[in-house]
Design a protein around this nucleic acid. Structure first.
Length: 211
DNA sequence: ATAGCGATTTGCT
DNA sequence: GCAAATCGCTATG
């Protein structure tokens, strides 16, 4: 029998926990993006944790700036940043207020509103490409800095996260983040669902960096 | 399939 | 000045 995804919204207490506990728990959840033209829904398949001051790769590692300010605020809000002069990335603020940790939403499978997502990302060749990668995900969902700091745990906003369907535990994978050396480089920051076509294949297969 | 490169903001040295 | 939580185009095997 086929069970429909649980559409109960996650409340703020879900995000008020240690970020490394939340990250794997986020896989299989459904992110709802309410646009003026209608909803786009996406099942999360790949995420990456950023553990505030303990994580050399985190934007919050060296303290508060104008850009990362919302990471220091209450959990369950969005942190949207603009990078490489071209793209946006979408994060969820985690942990108790002041811990400045968050989770980057790296990939997902569009389950509703694929027609809208294709308008936002006309270069996409396949449906599985629509949100395959953090900047692609933000583009497909029409996310920009105007949505920075939005409360994703309250009705009426641009985002909501639903309970969804847990992934097969046997398909859960974790691995170190690429490109960050020094302390904590071997920590399992990255989580994904193995075999899912929306996850970058080389990341799922060889989560390490050459040289 | 894989490698190189351009686009061009942000924050730190 | 430079590297970055990147993507997509182009050239090559």
């Amino acid at each position: 029998m086929i069970t429909a995804p649980d559409r109960t919204p996650l409340d703020r207490s879900f995000f008020d926990r240690p970020v490394l506990e939340i990250a794997p728990d986020l896989l299989g959840r459904v992110l709802v993006r309410h646009t003026d033209d209608g909803p786009i829904e996406l099942r999360l398949t790949e995420v990456e944790a950023y553990d505030g001051p303990n994580d050399p790769g985190s934007h919050a590692y060296r303290g508060r700036t104008d850009r990362n300010a919302v990471m220091f605020g209450p959990p369950g809000h969005t942190y949207v940043y603009f990078t490489y002069g071209m793209w946006h990335c979408l994060n969820l603020v985690c942990g108790p207020e002041g811990t400045a940790s968050g989770i980057l939403l790296r990939a997902g499978a569009i389950t509703t509103g694929a027609d809208l997502a294709r308008i936002h990302r006309p270069t996409s060749r396949k449906d599985s490409d629509l949100a395959q990668g953090p900047a692609r995900l933000a583009t497909a969902l029409s996310v920009d800095r105007a949505l920075n700091g939005a409360d994703a745990c309250a009705p009426g906003g641009p985002f909501r996260i639903l309970t969804g369907t847990p992934p097969d535990p046997a398909a859960l994978r974790t691995g170190p983040r690429t490109g960050v050396g020094g302390a904590g480089a071997d920590h399992p920051w990255r989580y994904w669902i193995a075999g899912d076509p929306t996850v970058s294949p080389y990341r799922a297969h060889a989560p390490r960096k050459r040289r």
